[in-house]
């Protein structure tokens, strides 16, 4: 008997089941199809302005920095300001996201490069397809638009998220994901990011910038802001 068969039959022996029982199969099929939500914290249930405010407050509590701009066209200047104020070189690596392609970067002094990171980029720029207000969490999907390596290798990560894409809770963000990729389907990597990288492994002292970015700067585009 193969390892697979032996493990499955061992589980069935322990559960006193055969695997062919109608009610058991129906229970599993129903859960996978219905995806019950369980307990969703009330704190995310707010109007759009309230969600954006909570998202910003929670992201800051997780030690990210945040700025709200009213139009995508204001994002390059805000990125430039962040780099300048942090004494960072005016260089930025990004993917092919159409939102960035439509922005006018020429007014800034930023030297732009495109594509995944090889580990030698100081600053990266990504777009989150969703934000989650309950914990100030960004959701980023892999692909040519936003290469996963940009989320982890650069020392400083700037992430743009639209206020319209900020949901109250994880469950609503998962629905947004299913609308983009289809039921039961996922991008190769879905990164939920809450604040910059950190570690407390040396003498239980929390320090930022373990392997991922030391700084996470979030630019929220909010026309109502």
């Amino acid at each position: 008997m193969s390892a697979r068969e032996e493990i499955l039959s061992g589980i069935r022996r322990s559960l006193k089941a055969t695997g062919a029982e109608g009610p058991r199969r129906a229970a599993v099929g129903a859960r996978l199809a219905m995806r019950p939500r369980g307990v969703v914290p009330a704190r995310g249930r707010r109007d759009p302005a309230g969600r954006t405010a909570l998202f910003v407050a929670m992201a800051q509590a997780a030690l990210a920095t945040c700025a709200v701009v009213t139009s995508p066209q204001d994002a390059p200047a805000e990125a430039a300001r962040f780099l300048r104020d942090a004494n960072l070189p005016a260089r930025l690596r990004m993917g092919a996201d159409p939102l960035f392609a439509d922005m006018d970067w020429s007014a800034t002094q930023i030297e732009i490069s495109h594509g995944p990171s090889d580990g030698h980029d100081l600053n990266g720029l990504s777009r989150a397809f969703a934000g989650v207000a309950e914990t100030g969490t960004l959701m980023l999907a892999s692909g040519a638009d936003n290469p996963t390596t940009l989320n982890f290798l650069p020392d400083n990560h700037i992430v743009v998220v639209s206020a319209d894409d900020i949901e109250g809770d994880y469950e609503s963000a998962f629905d947004r994901l299913r609308a983009l990729y289809g039921d039961g389907l996922m991008p190769r990597a879905l990164n939920m990011v809450t604040g910059p990288s950190r570690s407390a492994d040396i003498a239980q002292t929390m320090l930022l910038g373990a392997h991922g970015p030391r700084k996470l700067h979030i630019i929220v585009i909010d026309a109502a802001g």
């Binding site: 996922m186 991008p187 190769r188």
Partner: peptide, 16 residues
């Protein structure tokens, strides 16, 4: 900080 969902290998068009 990081909760990452990984599904399968690199896909067509994936840069990493």
């Amino acid at each position: 900080v990081y909760t990452t969902f990984a599904t399968g290998p690199r896909r067509a068009g994936d840069p990493d």
